[in-house]
Amino acid sequence: MSVVSTPSTERASRSGSHVSSAIQQGVVALFGALILYAVGFLPMSAAHNAAHDTRHTFVFPCH
């Protein structure tokens, strides 16, 4: 019994860490996208003015 169950538990934990790894990487990518939104797209005047030259150089639509 235990001989059979060990590999399946191992597989489960491996696929579990696979999922957790994918979620962690997804959150990192989301973190990057949120920062880019703040720098390049936030419509507030103050945000636009602070990041103005950056927006122009990176060709984020501006004005």
């Binding site: 990192v28 990057g32 996208a33 949120l34 920062i35 880019l36 720098v39 390049g40 990041a51």
Partner: peptide
């Protein structure tokens, strides 16, 4: 900030 976003 833009660099961090693209790098992430």
């Amino acid at each position: 900030c833009a660099g961090i976003g693209f790098a992430a």
